[in-house]
């Protein structure tokens, strides 16, 4: 069975027909053709499929597409705006905070969620913020460093704005 859902996807309104039993990650990948959100375990354990639901990180593999109805969804494809990388993305590049890159989109979404809630996280809070995202390549060292640098840059920019 399929149902029509309405939601905001990366800032754009979407009206779509979705099977009621389809997970959000499959809906994004197969119906919306947004393949930046990855399928790593499909049981909510690895975090590779993390997206933002109203600004908060959720694993999209244990969420149904139906549950997006009426909400604001952000995927990795919506993070770079007007051709400009988000500071978190830029720092991941500059600090070599990625290797195979398969966990990277989910990792960045969790970092954005963390910074939305806590713009000045301590190292321990950063580690806690990405504890649901498994990375087999990096040992997390450079990821923590990149998020910390991005947080500081964002804070500085905010200060300058004020």
């Amino acid at each position: 069975m399929k149902k029509i859902i309405h939601f905001t996807l990366n800032g754009e309104p979407v009206e779509a027909l979705a099977p009621v039993n389809m997970t959000m990650v499959d809906f994004l990948r197969k119906e919306m053709h947004l393949t930046g959100t990855k399928r790593g375990c499909e049981e909510g354990e690895c975090g590779a499929c993390t997206i933002l639901l109203d600004g908060r990180a959720v694993p999209s593999c244990i969420m149904l597409a139906m549950e997006a109805d009426g909400h604001e969804i952000t995927t990795i494809e919506g993070v770079k705006k007007n051709g400009v990388l988000h500071p978190v993305q830029q720092e991941f590049m500059d600090k070599w905070a990625l290797q195979c890159g398969f966990c990277t989109p989910g990792m960045i979404m969790s970092a954005l969620s963390l910074l939305n809630e806590n713009p000045n996280p301590t190292e321990e809070e950063i580690r806690d913020g990405i504890a649901g995202n498994l990375c087999r390549c990096t040992g997390y060292v450079k990821i923590v460093e990149a998020i910390d640098c991005a947080a500081k840059k964002l804070a500085k920019a905010k200060e300058a704005e004020a």
Partner: peptide
């Protein structure tokens, strides 16, 4: 210098096997 695949990987545009459609 930075990784040549870094931008593709931080924006989600990098194509892995499951992304071949």
């Amino acid at each position: 210098y930075i990784r040549i695949d870094a931008e593709a990987k931080v924006t989600g545009s990098a194509v892995y096997t499951d992304d071949v459609d």
